[in-house]
Structure formats: C-alpha cells, structure tokens
C-alpha cells in the first residue's frame, strides 16, 4: 500500500529504488586504455551512471552503473577517443 504523507510531500532520491537497467537493448563497453579522461561521457550521461576515476597521471578507469544504464549510446557518441562501444544484449540478439 502506498502511504501519502502530509501535503503529498515526497522523500528525496526515491527513484534510486527503481532500477532502469533492463530498459535498453544495448550496453556500453569501454576500453580504458584509450580513455584520456575528458569526462565528456560523465557529464553527458542522462542517467548519471558513468563515473570516470583517475588512477594515475595518464590512466583513467570508466565505470558504468548497470543498475540504471538505459543503453542510449550517448556516451559512445560523445567519446572523442572512440573508447566506448555499444554492444547488443544477449537477449536481444537475433
């Protein structure tokens, strides 16, 4: 049962309970060797599910939160180094 509080005010960040990771037909795969750390993918991701970590001066690690990734492919489009590739999920292969 959904309880409605006073004034219908919602708690923050409740959307985190709803995993949207199964929406898409594709998922991104990254070649960390090619990453130059520009963070274009991080700021362009509509789902806020990409994180670019700096390992050392030249090495970066890109991680995706597949609980939320909808597989839109914007990260692959904005990547200047072509380090991200969109791959079809096993279930959608014909």
């Amino acid at each position: 049962m959904l309880k409605i509080g006073l004034g219908g005010v919602s708690e923050p960040y409740l959307s985190l309970k709803f995993k949207t990771g199964d929406w898409g037909t594709h998922f991104p795969s990254v070649d960390n060797e090619k990453c130059k750390g520009c963070r274009d993918c991080e700021i362009s991701c509509p789902e806020a599910c990409i994180e670019v970590k700096k390992l050392n001066k030249k090495k970066f690690e890109v991680t995706f939160d597949f609980d939320f990734c909808k597989g839109c492919g914007i990260c692959a489009y904005v990547c200047r180094e072509d380090a991200i590739e969109m791959i079809v999920k096993e279930a959608y292969k014909v």
């Binding site: 923050p12 960040y13 959307s15 985190l16 309970k17 709803f18 995993k19 949207t20 929406w23 898409g24 700021i43 362009s44 991701c45 509509p46 789902e47 806020a48 599910c49 939160d65 609980d67 939320f68 909808k70 597989g71 839109c72 492919g73 914007i74």
Partner: peptide, 23 residues
C-alpha cells in the same frame, strides 16, 4: 554525488536530464 538521481523515467537518449542534472 548528484542532486538529480538515477532511476528517473526519461526515455533513453532524452536530453532533459542532462541539462537539469548539470545545472
């Protein structure tokens, strides 16, 4: 940490969450 959390219902590829979250 973002103030516009994941799990919202925008269509895949929608530009609106990009603008809102970054702002």
């Amino acid at each position: 940490m973002t103030y516009f959390a994941s799990g919202h219902g925008a269509c895949p590829g929608c530009g609106i969450p990009v603008a809102v979250r970054n702002i």
